[in-house]
Design a protein around this nucleic acid. Structure first.
Lengths: 204, 204
DNA sequence: CGTAAACCGGACTTGGCGGTCCAATCTGGA
DNA sequence: TCCAGATTGGACCGCCAAGTCCGGTTTACG
C-alpha cells in the first residue's frame, strides 16, 4: 500500500527546489543543468527524478512557484498598506534602493522572462502572481478612493496595470542597460500622475 | 593574397542572417539550431561557419543588429514627427493596434529579453538601440517645449525614459498574460501625464 | 586562360545534458 | 521484529546540436 512521502523525503525535495532556484538565479534558466542542481544540493540524479517524475519541466515549475511565493511575500510585506501618499512614496524609494543594491538578477525578471515561457505550468504560476499583485495594488487605490483622498476619475484597475507595467519595464531596462534610472523615471511619472488625482479629505 | 568577399558570398551571408532572424522570431533564441537556419536558408554548415567564424554567437550578434535596424526603422517611420499631441495619440493607437495583431512575438521582446543577454555583442547592440530610441523621443519632447506647447516643468529625458519603459513593460506583460490591456493602460497613463504639462501656444 | 582564393556541401566528430535503471539502504507502521 | 515501500547513489544510455574537415566548384583578377 502507498505510504506517502516521508519527512526526510519532503526535506530533500524542498532542498532540491531551493538549490535549483539558487542555481537558476545565478546561472540563468537555460544554463542551469540538472548536474548543477545535483552538485549544489548534495543529491543525485536518482533523487531528482524520484521527487520530480516530470523531469526538468516539473522542477522548473516548482521553482517558479517557489520564487513567486518569495516575490509576493516580499511585495506584501513591503507594500502592505499602500493606502496613503506617504506609503506610496516610501514604497517607491524602497523598491529603487533594493534594485540599486541587488542589480539585475532579481527573481522577478527571471520568473517573468525566463521561467514563464519555459513551461506551461510556470506560465500559469506567473500569470497568477501578476494577477494577485495587480489586485493588491488596485485594492489599495480603491481604499484611497473610499477614504476620499483619491478622485473617482481615476480607474483603479487601469492605474494598477500601469504601476505593474512600469515595474516590469523598469526591470527590463535595468537588465538591458544596467541602470535603475529608467525604472525610477517611470515610477516617478506614474506616481506623479496618481497624485494628480489626489483629493484632500476636507474638501471633496 | 586576400581578395575580400565576393558579391555572391555577401548575398549568402545576408540570406543566412535574414533566415536566422526569421527562425529566432518563430522558435525563440534557445530553440533555434544551426540546422534550422541551414534548412531555412538552403545553405550548409560549412557556409555558416565560413561566413561566421565565431559560430553561433557571432551569428546571433548579427541577427541582433539586423533586428535592431528593423525596429528602429519601423520606429522612426511610425513616430517620425512626435511633436504634436495628435501625433502622440495616433502613434499610441497604431502601436497598440500593431501589438494586438502580431501578438507577443515582436522583435523587440526577442531582442531585449533573449538576444541581448545571449552574447556581449548583442547586448551592446540592444543598448545602442534603446539609447537611440530614447534620444528620438526626448528630441520630440524638446521640440514641443521649444514650440511652447509643453511646459518647462517636465524633464524631457525622464519623460522619454518613462515612455520607453512603459513600452518595454507592456510588451513583457503582453508576453506573460496574452493581453495588450496593460500596455495600453500604461501608455494611456503616461501620455495623460504628459498632457498634464500641456500649454496652449496662445497663453504661455 | 590559369590559378589562387572565395565559396559550397555534407559527412563526421565531440561533448554535454536529460533521462533511465537498478541495486543498496533507510523508515515507519502493523 | 518485519517488510513494503520510500529513499538514495551513481553508472549508464541516447540524443542532439555545435563545431570540424575536406574534397569539389565557382569566381575574380592578371
Amino acid at each position: 500500500m502507498p505510504r506517502g512521502r516521508t519527512p526526510k523525503g519532503e526535506a530533500t525535495r524542498a532542498r532540491i527546489i531551493a538549490g535549483a532556484a539558487e542555481a537558476v538565479l545565478a546561472l540563468g534558466v537555460m544554463d542551469t543543468t540538472l548536474d548543477d542542481v545535483r552538485e549544489r544540493t548534495g543529491t543525485s540524479k536518482g533523487q531528482i527524478f524520484h521527487h520530480f517524475p516530470g523531469g526538468k519541466d516539473e522542477l522548473l515549475t516548482e521553482v517558479a512557484r517557489h520564487e513567486a511565493d518569495r516575490v509576493l511575500n516580499g511585495v506584501q510585506a513591503r507594500m502592505s498598506p499602500l493606502t496613503t501618499w506617504e506609503a506610496w512614496s516610501r514604497w517607491k524609494d524602497q523598491l529603487i534602493g533594493e534594485y540599486d543594491r541587488s542589480g539585475a538578477d532579481c527573481p522577478l525578471r527571471i520568473l517573468v522572462n525566463h521561467l514563464g515561457p519555459a513551461t506551461p505550468g510556470a506560465r500559469a504560476v506567473v500569470a497568477e502572481l501578476l494577477s494577485q499583485w495587480h489586485t493588491h495594488i488596485r485594492t489599495g487605490l480603491e481604499r484611497m478612493r473610499s477614504a476620499g483622498i483619491l478622485s473617482g476619475d481615476l480607474d483603479p484597475a487601469a492605474a494598477a496595470s500601469a504601476v505593474l507595467t512600469a515595474i516590469q519595464g523598469g526591470v527590463v531596462m535595468l537588465a538591458a542597460t544596467g541602470t535603475t534610472a529608467h525604472l525610477e523615471a517611470s515610477l516617478d511619472l506614474t506616481l506623479a500622475h496618481l497624485r494628480t488625482h489626489a483629493l484632500t479629505p476636507d474638501r471633496p
